[in-house]
């Protein structure tokens, strides 16, 4: 998918929000959109998602199924969680049975079970944000656009975002994420797009140097052999620990950073 010399402003004669933006993202790739408040991150994301049409230039190769997670989910609607998600699935062309299945799957995964019959206006901000996430994933998206997806989410749900992103990428989808709090350390290997002065500049990930931490569970008896084999294949084994108390992924990621710099 490619944005080719795209210009955008909200009204004719108004100031340009984006000028001559050209960026490209391939299947299986993620891009993190960085920038100050009001720099135009959300605008760029909505342009990519097809919500805002460009004033000049064009957007090529947008996948048929797009999932967009807005910065704030509009919870002021007269539906229950179940009713809303089922309607969203039906809107996306799923049959009644498929819709029920997809909704059940995401309700379970996001821990929305207890809220199924709760009306949207009564949800807490974080739970409403999860509905926003769920509706974008009911059909596996070819392009997933996440606008500040970590806002308001609890620790458990925060871990879920990189997981979901990984799944979309593995299925050949593209992912765009905006972030102003540096949470994107959780998305190693992503392209970095910085929005500033109405334009977008890209910092390509430094290929070989981009590191990812993989957690493995190995029978204790075979650990020495496994570590030896991984080292022989050129992997960097950070440490070996007991399986009982898994620490949060963040500590491992920062551990990797410490490991690299020392």
């Amino acid at each position: 998918m490619r944005l080719e010399d795209v210009w955008l402003r909200y009204r004719r004669g108004g100031p340009w929000v984006l000028r001559s933006v050209t960026v490209e993202i391939a299947p299986g790739e993620a891009a993190v959109v960085l920038g100050r408040n009001g720099a135009g991150k959300s605008t760029l994301l909505q342009l990519a998602a097809g919500i805002l049409p460009p004033a000049r230039g064009r957007v090529d190769g947008r996948p048929a199924v797009v999932g967009w997670v807005p910065e704030r989910f509009p919870a002021g609607q007269p539906f229950t969680v179940q009713g809303y998600l089922t309607a969203a699935a039906r809107m996306r062309g799923l049959s009644r049975i498929e819709a029920d299945k997809a909704v059940r799957g995401w309700v379970e995964r996001l821990g929305l079970g207890p809220f199924q019959c709760v009306r949207l206006p009564q949800l807490s901000k974080g739970t409403a944000q999860k509905i926003g996430l769920a509706q974008a994933l009911l059909r596996p998206p070819g392009l997933l656009v996440l606008d500040e997806p970590w806002e308001g989410l609890d620790a458990a749900a925060r871990e879920l975002v990189p997981e979901v992103v990984g799944e979309v990428l593995a299925a050949g989808g593209r992912v765009l994420v905006s972030d102003h709090r540096g949470e994107t350390a959780r998305l190693p290997g992503a392209r970095e797009w910085t929005v500033a002065d109405q334009t977008v500049t890209e910092r390509v990930p430094t290929g070989e140097r981009a590191m990812v931490v993989v957690e493995l569970a190995i029978p204790a008896a075979r650990v020495a052999d496994a570590v030896h084999r991984l080292r022989a294949e050129g992997h960097h084994v950070l440490r070996v620990r007991g399986h009982d108390a898994p620490p949060p992924v963040t500590r491992l990621v920062s551990g990797a950073a410490v490991e690299e710099s020392s």
Partner: peptide, 16 residues
């Protein structure tokens, strides 16, 4: 009756 953001969500779901 529909919030603006919901209108955009619907737009993404079915096309403009």
């Amino acid at each position: 009756a529909e919030p603006d953001v919901q209108r955009r969500l619907s737009l993404v779901a079915v096309g403009p």
